[in-house]
Amino acid sequence: MNNSKNVLLFQKQLLAVNGEFISLDENQKVSSLVKEFITSNSIKSIVLSDFSQHQDLVEALEEDTEILADFGSRSYPLDEAGNLCAKADAGITDVYAIIADTGTLVISSRNRGDRLCSSLPPIHLALIGNSKVYLNFEEFIENTPKEHTYALITGPSRTADIEKKLILGAHGPKRVVVFYSEGNAGCT
């Protein structure tokens, strides 16, 4: 399977569902680009789930940004975790897999904090550098371990319950921003 072609398709579909896509070139570090984004969007506080690069990010961000919860460094009781995530301006998670033809992020429950960091803050920053890349839903279902919980997220939270008018940010994030680093994606 041609990964870069799939990532391109993913990007196109993500944009079609009001998501955002930021691509890194080889010399850029994810942490510095996230930092740049956080500064330019006046994000004051963040929460992070427990993923492999969380330490790099914490180090890069902690100087200027308040880190309300870092699920990689400790666990929190459910109610405290919820309150912290609800206060944050943005939540950062990595992504288990992406599905190209629908622009979908697959978040698994294996990382602590993934659910709350990707759903409560108004902005979700999703890192797909290490994600598996699937062409479509069928491929995802076929190849994915069946013992876990997964959430497939396609764009920002949305509603059209009032006169069918599309509004982004019903209960979940109003913005979903995907960070992608070439040459570092896809393990399929």
Binding site: F137, A151, L152, T154
Partner: peptide, 12 residues
Amino acid sequence: KFSGYFHLLKPS
């Protein structure tokens, strides 16, 4: 084309 959220849930 696909719903905003699709959950595949199991007891944790």
